[in-house]
Design a protein around this nucleic acid. Structure first.
Length: 614
DNA sequence: GTCGGAAGTC
DNA sequence: GACTTCCGAC
């Protein structure tokens, strides 16, 4: 059985520290697992096994019990604990080793990133105090050296908590539970770290500093990996080509028996293909060559890229908006570099300027649609939603390739997309607006010709004053969501039944445009033109009827006139007093009615000219 | 044994 | 947010 000391399977100290659990003041399960893994006394309970980062829970019940003790959950059992572990799957912190019972594998990529939310990326986000140094600017990201003697002086060896294996050995004692005393969530580990740090660096960011001794230069730190030739060259025997299991284009981790040995975090190499769906970054493409570089800039770029891959499981453009210089290659990894637009990504583009943050991009997007995006995106299009699939099936244009090309060409889901491009769902700012967006899309598809898509606006939406582009404006977040799996179906599908409510104004404004608007009172407000037309039809019909009646009337009158020739006078006098159209029961003489119709017609025309609409 | 949804807790 | 609890499905 391997012990952390034997195998070197030990994580950096930050990984064991509860405060390195972002967003949680309590110890997290993966921390606890690491904690157990590093303690020899629990080797019979849980231990590293197999591939790097892989561990097996030898005694599930005991692990559950320990976990329950730590969390003061006496009812804890392996079923529950394993459920918690399974939640790590989605977080890419852990994954299951299939076919091996009780065997899991850490994804160090994720752990690094979780604990290195570092990359400032211009967002102003600070590095957590508990986080180790990160490869930004003057900081030197450091993975644990293989042995203290390789890199560190004896004093450094003693002081640097970065020498994980030695630390781990010394740490492997004491209680696991913090439930009883409540004084420490990581008692013995913190104790150990504290011991070291008492002799070394203290302070709120002691871990950070502790991991990066001031005396350690970048060169000295990475020469261990770079070999005698300095940076960029692996030592003899070191694997040169990218380890598919490694987060690095060329793994800093040697294989078993490699030069660096297992003192590197066991999980560093962990997550292969499924978690590394692409070559870290084309901007690192020089690293794909025959030498590996731990150049901090390269590291930074790598980690930036990987930051995306891990945090954004499906290369959501939402995140790439933060790092627009990152071009995500298509699956054919080796050709990633040639895929790059040379002009946009010259080799000298390594030292990319600070990438604009999402906010600035947002701004940019809103105000400068006419300008081609300076950012080069090469993102896979989101999976087609149902509606999209149906649409593409029925239409000749809008192939999936055009989706991709539209993404790649503009870098933004630009409204300047030519007709024929697939209609792009724009993620709303809120769920509520999502509903609106769906409506907008539906409307535009069904009721509006493409010509009506607003070239000036941000979305494909009918150019209608009631539309109101505000909710349709693409935000960086909104755009990003296009590629989000979880949104794909929801966003693209046609809502079963539009729910009125807060959406009503927008919906009505959009949907009702072709039809008659609804008056505030709820009655249909028939357009004036239509009303006059109806009136005209009525008049025409009435006129025909009246002429028929008139014929009979004449006949009757002729008969009556023979008897009472003066009876018609008063009847004629009633005519002007009654509108012929309002007095259907007693129609005026034809001439009068004709004059009335003419009057109506003239009135209608006049009204049409004077009034625009209802 | 493993998985993941759902609801609940803190 | 990070589990915990329960549970049905495979």
């Amino acid at each position: 059985m391997k012990t952390p000391g034997d195998t070197g399977f030990a994580f950096p100290d930050w990984a064991y520290k509860p405060e390195s659990s972002p967003g949680s003041r309590q110890i997290q399960l993966w921390h606890f697992i690491l904690e157990l893994l590093r303690k020899e006394e629990y080797q019979e309970v849980i231990a590293w096994q197999g591939d790097y980062g892989e561990f097996v829970i030898k005694d599930p019940d005991e692990v559950a019990r320990l976990w329950g003790a730590r969390k003061c959950k006496p009812q804890m059992n392996y079923d529950k604990l394993s459920r918690a572990l399974r939640y790590y799957y989605n977080k890419r912190i852990l994954h299951k080793t299939k076919g091996k019972r009780f065997t899991y594998k850490f994804n160090f990529n994720k752990l690094v990133l979780v604990n290195y939310p570092f990359i400032d990326m211009g967002s102003g986000r600070g590095v957590p105090q508990s986080a180790p140094p990160v490869p930004t600017g003057g900081s030197h990201f450091r993975f644990p050296p293989s042995t203290p003697s390789e890199v560190l002086s004896p004093s450094e060896d003693l002081r640097s908590p970065g020498v994980f294996s030695s630390v781990a050995r010394r740490m492997a004692r004491g209680s696991v539970s913090d439930c009883s005393d409540g004084t420490s969530t990581n008692s013995e580990l913190e104790e150990g770290v504290g011991i070291e740090e008492r002799g070394g660096v203290a302070g709120p960011d002691r871990t950070f500093r502790g991991l990066l001794h001031p005396r350690l230069s970048h060169d000295s730190l990475f020469r261990a990996y770079g070999g005698p030739g300095g940076l960029g060259r692996p030592p003899p025997g070191h694997r040169v080509h990218g380890d598919p299991m490694s987060p690095f284009p060329v793994s800093p981790l040697p294989g078993p028996g490699g030069l660096l040995g297992p003192t590197l975090s066991p999980a560093m190499s962990m997550t292969p293909g499924s978690h590394l769906p692409y070559t870290p970054s084309p901007s690192l493409s020089p690293m794909l060559g025959s030498h590996f570089s731990f150049n901090p800039d390269d590291m930074k770029r790598y980690l930036q890229a990987h930051h995306q891959s891990v945090y954004n499981y499906h290369l959501s453009p939402r995140a790439f908006f933060h790092y627009p210089n990152i071009v995500v290659p298509q699956p054919h990894r080796p050709s990633a570099a040639p895929d790059k637009p040379p002009a946009a990504h010259p080799p000298t583009h390594h030292h990319a300027p600070p990438v604009p943050h999402s906010h600035s991009l947002h701004h940019h997007h809103q105000g400068e649609e006419q300008h081609p995006s300076p950012f080069k995106f090469k993102l896979q299009p989101p999976p087609l939603g149902r509606k999209q699939r149906e649409g593409s099936a029925s239409s000749t244009g809008g192939s999936s390739s055009s989706v991709g090309s539209s993404y790649a060409a503009s870098g933004l889901l630009s409204n300047s997309s030519p007709v024929g491009l697939p209609k792009i769902k724009v993620e709303p700012i809120s769920d509520m607006e999502s509903e609106e967006e769906v409506e907008v899309t539906d409307i535009s598809e069904e009721d509006e010709p493409l010509d009506d898509y607003d070239d000036e606006g941000d979305v494909f939406a009918p150019a209608h004053p009631a539309n109101g582009n505000a909710p349709c404006t693409i935000t960086n977040g909104g755009l990003g969501a296009i590629a989000e799996d979880d949104l794909d179906e929801d966003v693209f599908k046609t809502p079963a039944a539009p729910t009125l409510g807060p959406l009503t104004p927008t919906l009505l404004g959009l949907k009702s445009e072709p039809g008659p608007p609804i008056s505030p009172g709820g009655t249909l407000c028939i357009p004036l033109k239509q009303r006059f037309k109806r009136r005209w039809n009525e008049d025409q019909k009435m006129e025909a009827d009246c002429e028929r009646e008139n014929a009979e009337d004449k006949k009757v009158r002729a008969e009556k006139d023979e008897v009472t020739p003066t009876r018609r006078e008063p009847e004629n006098g009633e005519g002007p007093q009654k509108s012929p159209s309002l007095s259907l029961g007693a129609p005026p003489p034809p001439a009068q009615r004709r004059a009335s119709s003419e009057l109506h017609r003239a009135t209608a025309q006049l009204s049409l000219e004077n009034h625009g609409a209802c």
